[in-house]
Amino acid sequence: MPMIEAHDLRKTYRANGEDVHALDGLSLQVPEGRVIGLLGPNGAGKTTAVKVLTTLIRPDSGTARVAGLDVLTQAREVKRVVGSSGQYAAVDENLTGVENLEMVGRLYHLGTRAARARARELIDLFDLAEAGDRPVKGFSGGMRRRIDLAGALVIDPQVLFLDEPTTGLDPRSRIALWGVIKSLVAGGTTVLLTTQYLEEADHLADSIYVIDQGRVIAEGTSDELKAQIGGHRIALALVDAADTGAAREILARHGTGPVTVDDSGRSLEVPVQRGPSTLAAALAELAQAGVELHDAGIRRPTLDDVFLTLTGHLAQASPDPAAPSQIDEAAS
């Protein structure tokens, strides 16, 4: 039985007089014990999908089940078995770290005493013991995130939803948080996480759904997705931008896709079928044409390449005016 199952979810918002299709026929299936990443730019529908699955909003049409329970008709039962951490650390500033978690435990009906004990456990687990009895007001963004994530783990959830768990964190906190998530999923929890960071999906998820404009546009493991767009890429760095034309022509002959050139005209890339032999052949021709190189090499495609190939635009380069601003990392 899939732990998370969504079928043809649709949700349309009206914003500024226009219909926005936040979900446009989204379907997905997550088997038990797997970590699935929903990858997509701002406004792709990731958060809306998570909100439907965590019973926060009702879709216009479509069905969804979590742990075998219908999110529309059995919302109350769904809430008892899932943990979730939203895109913004939803913690109460005026409560201490421990009180925040105790409150969540009491609202899961663990009983006041058990809720308090669990709160202490989680505070230790997330390495917040020293700050745990101070109001969250004085916490840094990273500490707030940890409290929020701990809130999702007050019960030991069958299914865990993490909406952009590391958005707004500095790289060090992000890597630390990845460690926490990995340790947690080692125990068999099913996790659905959303991210705009390709590296994060690559790092954490067993399998990835690439989402754009409310739809799944590709699905598979990171390696499968990379394979979909060709085995290797040849990358060149030219000494002189005057050679761009000649170099592009040579690469185009060897490539299996379009040649991309950066703004300076000195960095060129092309997808190829067989990396090493193609690189050798291309290098010979470049030398013959008198094109001088700083650097040349083969690399495996990144998820960035996948995204660019699938959607025609980069994952990050999608500033969405409707998207709320990110968390302020500095403690306020």
Binding site: V82, Y88, A90, L107, Y108
Partner: peptide, 12 residues
């Protein structure tokens, strides 16, 4: 603050 969202995911 998103606290209502947190509450709404709890079985309250």
């Amino acid at each position: 603050d998103g606290i209502i969202d947190r509450f709404r995911t709890l079985p309250m």
